[in-house]
Simulated scan of single mutants.
Amino acid sequence: MQTRRSLLKNTAGLALAAGAITSLPVAALAKAPMVGMQAPNYYRLRLGDYEITALSDGTVKLPMAKIYEQIEESEAEAHLANHFQSNPTEVSVNAYLVNTGERLVLIDAGTGTLMGAALGKLVANIKASGYEPSQIDEVILTHIHADHSGGLVADGKRVFENATLHVNEREADFWLKADEKTRADAALGPQVLQAEQCVGPYVEAGKLRTFANNAAPLPGFGSVFRPGHTPGHSAITVESKGEKIVFWGDIAHGDILQFDRPDVTVEFDVDQSEAAKTRAIAFAEAADQKYLVAGAHHAFPGIGHVRRDETNYDWVPVAYTATF
Rank of each mutant, 00 (worst) to 15 (best):
R170S: 12
G295W: 03
E77P: 00
R170H: 12
A95E: 03
A109R: 05
S234N: 12
A322Q: 12
G220T: 11
A178H: 07
A235M: 11
G222C: 14
P63G: 10
R209W: 00
L7M: 14
F84L: 13
G13V: 13
T265S: 15
N125P: 05
V203Q: 14
I144R: 10
R307C: 00
A95H: 01
H79I: 15
N82A: 15
G58K: 02
N312V: 05
E102C: 07
E132F: 00
R170W: 06
I21F: 10
Q194N: 10
Y43H: 14
A276M: 03
K177A: 14
K207A: 15
T210L: 01
P133M: 09
A275L: 08
P133N: 07
T89V: 02
A282H: 00
H253M: 14
A322H: 10
I67C: 06
Q135E: 13
D108A: 11
F283M: 10
A187K: 15
Q272E: 15
I21S: 05
G200F: 05
N312S: 13
A319P: 01
N41T: 14
M64W: 01
L208P: 01
H229Y: 15
V167G: 00
F160L: 11
A322V: 11
I236D: 07
L141W: 02
A284S: 13
F283W: 07
G304R: 01
T323S: 10
L24V: 12
V167I: 15
P262M: 11
D137Y: 02
K277G: 09
D250W: 02
T59G: 09
R5E: 14
E196C: 07
V98I: 14
T113Y: 08
T11P: 00
H145A: 12
E196Y: 04
P317M: 01
E138Y: 10
R158M: 11
V246C: 04
G220E: 09
N168T: 05
S223F: 04
T113P: 02
I144Y: 04
E169T: 13
D137M: 04
A319N: 13
D255L: 02
Y131L: 12
P262D: 09
H148D: 10
L45N: 02
I52M: 08
P190W: 11
K61I: 06
K241R: 15
G249P: 01
R308T: 07
Y313V: 10
V192Y: 04
P227W: 02
T210G: 01
R170A: 14
A184S: 15
K290N: 12
P40D: 10
L106N: 01
A54W: 00
H253G: 06
N41W: 09
R170N: 14
R158S: 08
G116T: 05
P88Y: 08
A128F: 03
D260S: 13
Q2I: 15
D250E: 11
D271L: 07
V318N: 07
L208R: 07
G206W: 05
Y96G: 02
D179M: 10
A186F: 10
